[in-house]
Structure formats: C-alpha cells, structure tokens
Amino acid sequence: MLEIKNLHVKIADEDTEILKGIDLTLPKGEVHAIMGPNGSGKSTLAYVLAGKPDYEITGGTITWNGEDITGMSPDERAARGIFLAFQYPIEIPGVATMTFLRTSLNAVRKARGEEQLSTPEFMRVVREKADELKVSSDKLKRPLNVGFSGGEKKRQEILQMSLLEPTLCVLDETDSGLDIDALKIVADGVNALRGPERAMLVITHYQRLLNYIVPDKVHVLSNGKIVRTGGKELALELEKSGYAEFGEAAA
C-alpha cells in the first residue's frame, strides 16, 4: 500500500511550495487516477515518488508497504518495485536500448534476489513484450529513445514497465501525444499488468485514457492539493465541466 500523508514539497533551490499537503492512500490491487489542470503539481508528485533529486520534501511522509521511502535513492525505490513512466521520456545518445534494458532488468532482479537472465532468455522476453506493444526490433537497436516520436517513447516506457514488473506503477500522462490506436496498445499493456499485487497511479489531463484503463478512484489535484476524490464517474463529470472551478484559467 502507498500512503502519502500531508506531503509538502518545494523545488530544492527555491522557496516556492508546489505540493501543499497531499493525502492519498492507494492499496494494492487498485488503480487510482490523478487528474488536474496543467501546473497543478501532478508531475511533481510523480517525480517525488520516484525520488528525483530536484525536489525537497518539507513536510509529511510517504510510505510504500509500510516503509518510509523519502530517504531512498531512485534506484533503491526501483528495487522496491516503484516505477515511473515519464511524461517526457528522455533520449540518451550512446546508450544502446538493449544494453540499457538488460542493465536495468538485471539490477532490479538482483535487488529482488532473483537470478540474472541469460542472454537468450533476456532476448526472448524482450522480443515477446516488444511484440505485444508493437515495438519493432529496429527500434531496439537504436540508442535509447534517440530519434523516436513521442508515441514511440511512451511505448518504450510501457515496455520497460512490463519487463521490470514493478508493484507500484506511476504513469505520468502516458496518454498525451498518442493517437487512438497507440492509446489502445498502451492501455492493453497497462491492463495486462493489473493484479492484486500491484498498485497503479494513473496521471492524466484528459478523461479519454480512463475509458481504457478504468480506475477505482479519481483524485483531482489543483494547486498542489487534492481537492476532490470520487469514483470513475468523477472523470466524466470533469470532462463536461472542465477544470474551470479548479483553477484551469490560471494555467
């Protein structure tokens, strides 16, 4: 279970507070959506969960499976099953995708006390997952994300997620920049990972994604606070009314 209590966050070298007291409880087996206008702090929350050094927690706690994660490095969190699918996945020239996937998978497996995969096994697993996500083998031969379209990068993120089999999946606007076919492929990939051992936090600006990944709960984030929580029908309501009442005009 993920438990966030009264979380306050600011940017490390500035005074501006971005998250202003977040409370959120996400049990295993559930999928929660976070919706909110641009600039409300959605990505900040996602980064803080993953341990990005640019942010400073000034108050509150985050526990995952009862363990305080706030002092952990990003790789320690990944080892504990936390995975962030980036809103803007980055390109890393010179790092071959396969080398990266293998190093990542072996690091996570090692941390979980599992055996390293042999080369043929690794190749087979990657091939299988890549096929499901319609990622061509040509893309796997390139340096990580270099020259990929926005949609291709998002699919790489989901490929990494399905390889690493994390238990807390945080998806930051995975839907943005995807056409409807790509959206379905990605949603299928995400749905395939749903299960009693896994918690998912799906961040999105639009209701559309939630037609394909149906959440158990929807939280509305505005100006660094969760201002409403409801069932999946809250997303539809927001789709009609927009974020006006939550300060969209400010964005």
Binding site: A50, P53, D75, A78, L84, A107, Q160
Partner: peptide
C-alpha cells in the same frame, strides 16, 4: 542519470554507462 537510476541502475553503474 536520474532516468537510469529510476530504472533501478545504481549510481556508479549509471554514471559508468553514461
């Protein structure tokens, strides 16, 4: 560096890769 570490690669190894 953050991206690689977020994928479970410890810092020294991530640095070496870069």
């Amino acid at each position: 560096l953050f991206y690689l570490r977020a994928r479970g690669i410890p810092e020294p190894q991530a640095r070496a890769l870069l």
